[in-house]
Amino acid sequence: MITADVGLASLALGKGSSVLSPRGKKYEKETIDIVLQFRYLSSVERQKGKCGKRS
Rank of each mutant, 00 (worst) to 15 (best):
E30G: 06
D33V: 07
M1N: 09
S43F: 09
K26P: 02
K15W: 04
Y40R: 15
Y40D: 11
V35S: 02
P22E: 13
Y27A: 04
S10Q: 04
D5F: 14
F38P: 00
Y27F: 15
S43H: 12
L11F: 11
T31I: 05
G24C: 06
G16Y: 02
L36P: 00
R23L: 15
Q47I: 04
K26H: 11
E45F: 11
E45D: 07
Q47P: 00
G14S: 08
K50F: 12
Q37D: 11
G14C: 04
S55P: 12
R54P: 01
L11T: 08
M1V: 11
K25P: 00
G7A: 10
G16W: 02
I32Y: 00
K29S: 15
E45M: 11
K50D: 13
A4L: 07
L8D: 12
E45P: 00
V44Y: 05
K26D: 07
S17P: 01
S18H: 06
T31D: 12
A4Y: 10
L11K: 15
K15C: 07
S42H: 11
V19N: 00
V19A: 00
Y27Q: 03
S42W: 10
G24S: 06
V44C: 09
S17G: 05
Q47K: 13
T3H: 06
V19E: 00
Q47M: 09
K25Q: 15
E30M: 06
V44D: 08
M1S: 13
T3Q: 04
K53I: 05
K25E: 15
G14V: 03
D5W: 10
E45N: 06
S42K: 13
V35R: 02
V44K: 14
K53C: 05
S17D: 13
L36K: 09
Q47R: 14
T31L: 08
G16H: 03
E28G: 13
G7I: 08
P22Y: 13
I32F: 01
L11I: 11
K25D: 13
G49D: 03
K29Y: 01
K26E: 11
S18T: 09
S17E: 13
Q37F: 02
A9C: 04
G7F: 09
S42Y: 13
G52Y: 03
K25N: 14
L13D: 00
S10M: 02
S10R: 08
K15V: 06
A12E: 06
G7V: 09
S18G: 05
A4H: 08
S10H: 13
Y27N: 02
K50N: 15
V6M: 10
I34K: 07
G16A: 02
I2P: 06
L41Y: 12
A9P: 01
L13M: 03
R23S: 15
T31P: 00
K29F: 02
I2F: 04
R54Y: 05
R23P: 01
S42M: 14
